[in-house]
Nucleic acid binder design. Structure first.
Length: 318
DNA sequence: GTCCAGGATACTG
DNA sequence: CAGTATCATGGA
């Protein structure tokens, strides 16, 4: 069926979202510079990922909508993003909420014109911008998940980090079964807050990491820390400082979380070895650049550090 | 066997 | 206050 014909039969809720009257899906009209397949490659970067699945040309994600677990199937259909609900019959408001979730996950509201302009003038950004054109920063909307994922990833290879995450999620997260597949939600902080350090060391966390994760869970569970509070801060500095007060959170995690959870454009986890390796390759160096050298390069990236970082990470695989 | 992974903290001189 | 040890495991 022709796309225009299809859309004409849909109820248009806003400029971005189209919701079908009768059928069980919702369509997002992404900006024209968005490339779903590029984002899919990022999502498929690890076979060990437990919190979503890429199968064929679709991306499956379990989310919680008004206390109900809902499975999303997200795919590209003739240049628009289509979200199916394979196991649920949803009200329009729930469909809209799911669409907003995906909208924010892919940072679709962002106008990237200034980033492209920057790319024209920068020899490092230009080639990766062209090569992965259409890629957007893909977020981790849940603050607790973003913090835990970063803590788990400290100073270990990503394979092992994924293994730690899988164990945590499969033991303490909620689960939904569809056909022969299980889909998981990241554990709730109120659950993790009640754990002992030994509950996590028994699944190969270091005792340090176990303390950090439980500590963060407690802060979020008792309301001391929340995404809302971070969003209310007046600027980047204030948000950074709020995160740096947390035990286990250093500069790398603070910037990582601002970038991936709050979609902060100026966030730049400069200590990240992934950035170091990507720059080494991009610049053809025989060793990784120093922090000072990177700071120097990054003066040209002001305001778009998060996007440069994400494109550099993308350059590390496939 | 050695070295390094998407670091952060506690300890030491 | 800057250096250094420590964490725990897997893959190259």
């Amino acid at each position: 069926m022709e796309l225009n014909k299809l859309i004409s039969r849909l109820l248009k809720i806003s400029d971005q979202f189209v919701i079908n009257d009768g059928r069980n899906f919702v369509i997002i009209l992404p900006p024209k510079d968005f490339n779903f397949d590029e984002c899919l490659k990022f999502l498929a970067r690890s076979q060990k990922e437990v919190l979503h699945e890429v199968r064929g040309n679709a991306f499956f994600k379990l989310i919680k909508l008004s206390n109900e677990l809902v499975l999303l199937k997200v795919m590209n259909e003739n240049g628009v993003i289509r979200i199916d609900f394979p196991e649920h019959k949803l009200e329009q408001n729930s469909k809209l909420t799911a669409a907003l979730y995906i909208w924010n996950l892919f940072d679709l509201g962002r106008d990237l014109d200034n980033f492209y302009e920057l790319g024209e003038k920068d020899n490092i950004v230009k080639p990766i911008l062209n090569k992965y054109f259409g890629l957007r920063v893909i977020g981790i909307p849940d603050l607790f998940e973003a913090l835990c994922w970063a803590i788990m990833g400290q100073q270990i290879n990503l394979t092992f980090a994924y293994s730690l995450k899988r164990k945590l999620v499969e033991k303490y997260g909620e689960c939904f079964q569809s056909k022969d597949n299980l889909y998981w939600l990241f554990p709730d902080p109120t659950v993790i807050a009640k754990l002992e350090v030994s509950d996590l060391t028994s699944m190969q966390f270091t005792s340090r990491k176990a303390e950090y994760v439980i500590g963060v869970a407690k802060l979020i569970a008792d309301g001391t820390l929340s995404k809302e509070k971070l969003l209310k801060c007046k600027d980047y500095e204030e948000r950074l400082n709020m995160l740096l007060k947390i035990r286990g959170v250093g500069n790398w995690i603070a910037d990582y979380v601002l970038m991936k959870c709050l979609m902060e454009l100026s966030a730049f986890p400069i200590a990240d070895v992934g950035i170091h390796n990507a720059l080494k390759i991009q610049l053809g160096l025989d060793k990784k650049p120093s922090i000072e050298e990177i700071k120097n390069l990054a003066t040209k990236w002001q305001g778009w550090e998060a996007y440069v970082t994400f494109y550099l990470w993308r350059s590390l695989y496939e």
